[in-house]
Simulated scan of single mutants.
Amino acid sequence: MTAHASPSEQPLLSVQDLRIRIQMDNGELNAVDGVDFEIRKGKTLGLVGESGCGKSLTSRAIISINPKECETTGTIVYQSSSEKELNSLNLLSLDSRSKQIRSIRGRKIAMIFQEPMTAFSPMYTIGNQIMESILIHRTKNKKEAKQIALEMLSKVGISDQEKRFDQYPHEFSGGMRQRAMISMALSCNPELLIADEPTTALDVTIQAQVLELMKGLQKEFGMAILLVTHDLGIIAEMCDEVAVMYLGKIVEQSTVKEIFNNPKHPYTKGLLRSMPRMGSNKTKRLESIEGTVPIATNMPPMCGFYERCNDRIEGVCNMQAVPKTQIAENHMVRCFLYQDKNEGD
């Protein structure tokens, strides 16, 4: 972020050198290791990678809801686009239980959680849980809060809202619960929506409906989206930019078009090769990336993808930490194969 940029030019959210460490019995786990990215108003950034790469911890750090065992450092600068709130705020400098972060969490930055089947409390009705956020952040008038909740249920395509308002989560299907969760997240018109695997538990038909719903609501409200997923098909449909994450680091970042047409990191290439494609040979097996994501405990300075990489350079990739290389204006890769393109940092 430039020092003299106007508010309209500044990113809505800027994450710099985010690190999350967890003390384990067998050493220190570097779950997130120096992550940088920016999200601008009205744009969608996709955070993609396999399970265990640190995507969910990164997204949850933004609103300070990670477990207390997580030692988090770095900066997460939130720049409200509201004319009344032009001052930048480092969210990591706030206590996770402070009034200030609670005024942002749910109101300015909302989150759709990964598992719709367990995100709602079984003890309260769907309407009651949606109203709770509205009563905290928008109005103290219960009648007005209920009307807003009913309108949001309608916006996400839930019919017979009066009836559904008084039903409990177990009376909703998985797709309806996901829609209700989206309505709760958007009930306070947030500037940033964090969607953590928002379609994981849904069938293909409902998944497509939910994605179309999110795009429509983004256009209507002008919000930014951080989309966390392992599905590159969803990334291609939803995102403007992509950050590919592996073992706690962003290993490649660029626009969606550039990542899909000109991938550079061997991990990104492997992810793309594992995608089914229209018109491909039906008898040919999909390629896969051999091995699994290692556990980032007491790791020496080396490329975390070294053991699984077919393009590794012996004596280089396994001997030192990999610097970032800017191979184009909007294309960063963390790989020794491209270090001669630029000095890196």
Rank of each mutant, 00 (worst) to 15 (best):
H4V: 08
S6M: 13
S6A: 11
P11C: 03
L13V: 10
Q16M: 10
R21V: 06
I22Q: 05
M24D: 10
M24V: 07
G34Q: 02
D36T: 08
E38P: 02
R40S: 08
K41N: 10
K41Y: 13
K41A: 12
L45H: 09
G46H: 15
L47G: 01
L47N: 05
L47P: 06
V48C: 03
C53L: 04
K55Q: 01
T58V: 11
A61C: 02
I63S: 03
S64Y: 14
C70E: 06
C70D: 05
T72K: 02
T72G: 05
T73E: 09
I76L: 04
Y78H: 07
Y78Q: 03
S80Q: 05
S81K: 15
S81E: 13
E85A: 05
N90K: 12
L91M: 00
S96I: 14
Q100C: 07
I101F: 04
R102L: 10
R105Y: 04
G106Y: 04
R107D: 13
I112E: 09
F113K: 01
F113D: 02
Q114F: 05
Q114G: 04
F120D: 03
P122I: 01
M123F: 15
G127F: 06
I130L: 07
I134A: 05
R138S: 11
T139Q: 01
K140D: 13
N141K: 13
E144K: 14
Q147E: 14
M152L: 12
V156D: 02
G157W: 15
D160C: 10
D166N: 14
F172M: 08
R177N: 09
M184L: 13
P190K: 08
D196N: 07
T199Y: 00
T200Y: 01
L213P: 01
M223D: 02
L227Y: 15
V228M: 11
V228L: 10
V228Q: 08
T229P: 01
E241A: 11
V244K: 05
K249P: 00
K249N: 12
E252D: 00
S254D: 08
K257A: 10
E258R: 13
K264M: 11
M275K: 06
S280N: 09
K282F: 14
T283V: 09
K284F: 13
S288D: 12
S288Y: 15
I289S: 07
I289G: 00
E290M: 13
V293S: 07
P294K: 11
I295S: 11
N298A: 11
M302K: 14
M302P: 03
G304A: 14
F305S: 00
Y306D: 04
R308K: 06
R308Q: 05
I313T: 09
C317G: 04
N318K: 07
M319T: 10
Q320I: 09
Q320V: 09
Q326C: 08
I327H: 06
E329P: 07
V333Q: 05
C335R: 10
L337I: 04
K341P: 01
N342K: 11
E343V: 09
E343L: 12
